[in-house]
Nucleic acid binder design. Structure first.
Lengths: 189, 189
DNA sequence: CGCGCGATTGAGTAATTTCAAATCTAGTGG
DNA sequence: CCACTAGATTTGAAATTACTCAATCGCGCG
């Protein structure tokens, strides 16, 4: 049994080990090497992933070739190309590993079947999306309200561990700032 | 029975009229005048609202007194101070009416009770938060990837009706641009 | 008619970007 | 163990974008 996911789920709902064992059958597990793509733009099928180990970046490359980072996610985080996953469309994001990574992943069909069968899991995912919403709200407000220095400072407070494990150029892209600007900011913080 | 909410719910799940009638008992209805606050920073209790009629702006005022707009919402949209509503904390947003407005609103406790009693409603709200997430993802990416002109152009495509009903200064704040910049942009689009 | 709000325009300023070059660092093969 | 290289970070200077502040314009409503 995957203890990491078990504990993660147990933070929100309580399940018996039997239930958990059955729930795990809806997921698959896979290992990825550093630099390997988990999702690549144009993939026909998207999955939702839970990170057991490692760290990934989820990014979008605009038509000028500039990379913008939606998420930098490590252990216990969920990630997916949300739009493709939920609408069954082709992926538009790239998600690749910044370290060797291992995830549990689930298809849309399996997730729906899981929610159907285990009511508590429907509750669990509703709550997960709720907290995700709140986090995205904060990010939008931060992009609207704060200048580069403030955003960087908030990032350091909020995700100190991510900051340690990730090249600063990626943090810059996450914050919507050029790497040079971020570099000039560092001494002041 | 509130047809507008009925139709809104029916887009995602199917319910009998009896079920719908009971569901409506979890909500309350209220009318607000133009310029009236629905949520004001510091409110001790937050509710989730469904707009029957009218248009509201949900905004955050930073410590320099600048107003940043999280949402401009009209009929059939949900709004709340998401963080306060879901975490039971004091509100930090201001939400007020740009026109005379009427909403159905629900407390956190009632929403949870509603989801508990009607499994389909739990599904409904999970889906609602899913689409909300996707929309927020797009907004973050737009703030990261696009300059002021592109964001404005996207806004016009996406929310033409909102644009008609709302002062441009508010659209500017929604896009994270000064009103003057937006004004200088207009002729080019 | 005049008030007041919203929108526009102009000019100077601040923040951030871009491009280019220099510096630093960690990992690799000899 | 050291030299070497690729990647990451920093620094500099010019260019750009958007902002602020201030003044003006336009229009609907009492």
């Amino acid at each position: 049994m995957e203890l990491r996911l078990k504990h993660h789920i147990n933070e929100i709902i309580t399940l018996t080990d039997d239930e958990l064992n059955e729930i795990f059958t809806f997921f698959s597990k896979k290992k990825y090497k550093k630099h390997q793509y988990i999702v690549q733009e144009g993939d026909l099928k998207a999955y939702e992933h839970f990170i057991l180990k490692g760290i990934v970046k989820s990014s979008y490359t605009d038509n000028e070739g500039k990379e913008h980072i939606m998420q930098l996610a490590a252990e216990n985080w969920w990630f997916s190309d949300t739009n493709a996953f939920n609408n069954g469309t082709v992926t538009t994001m790239n998600i690749d590993c910044l370290e060797n990574t291992e995830t549990l992943f689930i298809s849309y069909e399996n997730k729906e079947a899981l929610c159907e069968k285990f009511r508590k899991m429907e509750y669990f995912f509703r709550k997960k999306y709720t907290t995700g919403n709140i986090a995205l709200h904060k990010r939008v407000l931060s992009l609207l309200s704060n200048d580069a220095a403030e955003r960087y400072s908030q990032f350091l407070n909020q995700y100190p561990l991510i900051h340690q494990r990730v090249p600063k150029a990626l943090v810059a892209a996450y914050l919507g700032v050029s790497r040079e600007t971020l570099s000039r900011l560092s001494p002041k913080i």
